[in-house]
Design a protein around this nucleic acid. Structure first.
Length: 642
RNA sequence: CGCGGGGUAGAGCAGUCUGGUAGCUCGUCGGGCUCAUAACCCGGAGGUCAUGGGUUCAAAUCCCUUCCCCGCAACCA
């Protein structure tokens, strides 16, 4: 029976257009899926979108459209990107799909009936204007972190999943299956930070918003993201708690869930526990891939450094972008993308090594043999090294791909291409062409080159499908299957090769970068921050906050806290000790002597064990970047700020 | 003393498990070649393998010290 292979990506959240980093995951999954198809597996490749939640509900409200309209638009964009990136998914699931919502409801019901989900209450602080709950730790200045309003201590009913019940089984599974969480270092993070300290039961329902899957037996409750989104991996296969599902029986358990390293916790802890509770087998592997950075920075909209797949593809073509993503991403560390690096890779690998080899080989075939493929009749020892390398390379590819080391796999192909270029220099075809009695030897040399190119194209099919196809056309072969790599005789003597066309044009880096700079300057004017004002307050409300001018006398870091500085601040006749989360932006030395704005009537709290009696005012942007508010002119400390 | 990963040529990385000539790609310099997209091929320069100590005939590799970077966790009144 044919072996099956089930691979999934994380489903993309439909709150904004995915950037190239998100796109990477789909391309990576695609190359793995294609490779398995090519090497004989029955593959199911799932991807899709995660479309519920408060954030989407709010965004839709702001835009004045329905949540469904909002997610339809973004899901459409996601699908469009996945499509032009040439990803060969078998199914694109949306969590707003009917069958998915039903499956989620059934799963929730089943877990509730068997007691793994129970109704409890969520005790915390409630903000009336936001209709949201916050834990003590989430509060900002004892107030709502979102809108800054007063919060009330309150209880809200919610459903909880009993994680504790399954902790031991999960731990055992992780220990017994070292492949389960990859890369290895991630496994330690999960075990040490979460499982060992003990798992708290997980809140799996919400009442604070309605854009979600309703809990069937309790009106007002909506299934929260964990059970909703994660279940897509089985609902997509038609999983049903009661009846059999053919696709599910065939493909489950997943061979690999490919996800970003940021959501590892949900996939390696919550998801396996849900499955255990459902009495369903666990996926074989969770692979938390690294992130793609813009240079050395995380991509984000507010930094204005977001790169989108569309722009890259428009400038460089799909396969060049796919090549870069797949080949330049390390296995465990974050990778980096810049236009400069991309152009360099295209020029040196794709244009020079690959494209030029194909081009020169076809040109020689045409020139010397009128495009005819010749019989390889005059062998020489020097051929053996080339041929045996060609025959070994497919095995190496399989080994690398088994470990999901895609970059390494591609490198093997390029080793063969480099060796082929060298072979041309070793055999001097242009000299052979000058002597009539060397014609047959020349034919053999060209045969070997064409066959190496064919080998390479077959092996590149999963990574650069369009390019592989173009190469097959140029060398005019239909022998493109993986099995044809078992012997070095796929090219048929007597056939004619096709027309040589440039596969990848060399790019003038300077010119291209200018072009892109200009484009980015036009397209991305620095956006003003959209102001969504907090509720109006009266002057009386304002006057409750006692802000004073202070002067920093001393300042030092708080031990074992990366972000905290503790300052002694002179405010009038008092000296306050204040802890601030600004250690990443200011050194203690530069703090001393600064005149600052201090909120003095905040309830004192201990931070990392250090008492803080107030708060220093700072400007803070979306990225969390801080700037301390100081004074324009020297003032006597203790003055009121109004 | 929270947990983990890492520091190897100008850049990016492999090698470390299982000690035995320090390697790959890019860049740079020089040479070769002309079939090809100024491409391809060969050679050179460039490394105290972060640091200090230990084990050993022999250490990038094994053991310990210190310093630095990164991830996770905690923390942002």
């Amino acid at each position: 029976m044919q072996k099956k292979y089930y691979i999934t990506t994380a489903i993309a959240y439909t709150s904004k257009t995915p950037h190239i980093g998100n796109t990477y995951e789909a391309v990576l999954a695609d190359s793995i899926a294609r490779f398995h198809r090519q090497t004989g597996y029955d593959v199911f490749f799932l991807t899709g979108t995660d479309e519920h939640g408060q954030k989407i509900e709010n965004q839709a409200k702001e835009m004045g459209i329905s949540p469904k309209e909002h997610v339809d638009k973004i899901a459409g964009e996601v699908k469009e990107i996945w499509d032009f990136m040439n990803t060969s998914y078998d199914k694109f699931i949306r969590t707003t799909d009917d069958y998915h919502e039903k499956a989620v409801q059934k799963i929730f019901e089943k877990l509730y009936k068997q007691g793994d989900i129970y109704k409890g209450s969520y005790e915390g602080w409630y903000c009336t204007s936001c209709e949201s709950f916050y834990t003590e730790a989430q509060l900002k200045d004892g107030k709502c972190p979102d809108c800054g309003d007063e919060v009330d201590k309150a209880k809200e009913e919610a459903y909880f999943l009993k994680l504790s019940k399954y902790t031991d089984r999960l731990m055992k599974h992780i220990e017994e299956n070292p492949e389960f969480i990859q890369p290895e270092s991630r496994k330690n993070e999960m075990v040490n930070n979460f499982i060992k300290p003990g798992l708290q039961d997980l809140c799996v329902s919400r009442t604070s918003f309605t854009w979600g899957v309703p809990v069937t037996f309790d009106e007002g409750h909506v299934v929260y993201v964990w059970i909703d989104a994660l279940s897509n991996y089985i609902s997509a296969l038609g999983y049903d708690t009661e009846s059999d599902a053919p696709l599910f029986n065939k493909y489950w358990p997943a061979d690999v869930h490919l996800i970003g390293k940021d959501i590892l916790r949900f996939h390696t802890i919550y998801w396996p526990i849900v499955l255990m509770a459902l009495n369903v087998e666990l996926p074989k592997q969770i692979f938390g891939h690294p992130w793609l950075l813009q240079g050395t920075d995380k991509m984000s909209k507010s930094k204005g450094n977001t790169i989108y797949a569309k722009q890259l593809v428009d400038h460089f073509g799909v396969d060049a972008v796919r090549y870069y993503l797949l080949h330049e991403m390390p296995f465990a560390n974050d990778g980096s993308l810049t236009y400069e690096l991309l152009i360099e890779r295209i020029n040196s690998d794709l244009a020079n090594i690959l494209g030029n080899l194909v081009n020169r080989t076809i040109a020689m075939s045409k020139k010397y043999f009128d495009s005819k493929v010749m019989e390889p009749s005059v062998k020489e020892p020097i051929d053996d090294e080339l041929i045996s390398l060609a025959l070994e390379t497919p095995k190496k590819l399989v080994e690398s791909m088994d470990k999901l080391k895609v970059a390494e796999a591609i490198s093997h192909v390029f080793t063969l291409l480099r060796r082929s270029n060298k072979y041309i220099d070793e055999t001097y075809p242009w000299l052979l062409a000058k002597e009539e009695d060397k014609k047959e030897r020349l034919g053999t040399v060209l045969y070997n080159l064409l066959e190496c190119i064919r080998f390479s194209a077959v092996m590149l099919s999963s990574f650069m499908p369009d390019t592989a196809k173009k190469i097959f056309e140029q060398i005019n072969t239909e022998v493109t299957g993986w099995d044809s790599l078992k012997s070095f005789d796929g090219m048929k003597p007597g056939d004619s090769v096709g027309i040589g066309e440039v596969l990848f044009a060399r790019i003038d880096a300077e010119k291209k970068l200018e072009e892109i700079d200009e484009e980015n300057a036009n397209n991305a004017p620095k956006q003003d921050i959209e102001i969504v004002s907090k509720p109006e307050i009266t002057i009386d409300d304002f006057s409750k906050i006692d802000v004073r001018i202070g002067k920093i006398l001393e300042c030092e870091p708080v031990k074992k806290a990366k972000k905290l500085l503790v300052s002694k601040v002179k405010v009038g006749n008092q000296v306050r000790q204040i802890v601030s989360g600004i250690a990443e932006y200011y050194t203690p030395e530069e703090m001393v002597g600064k005149q600052v704005l201090v909120v003095i009537n905040l309830k004192p709290v201990k931070l990392r064990g250090v008492l803080s009696e107030g708060m220093l005012l700072c400007g803070e942007d979306e990225e969390g970047k801080l700037s301390l508010a100081t004074l324009y002119d020297d003032m006597n400390s203790g003055c009121e700020v109004r």
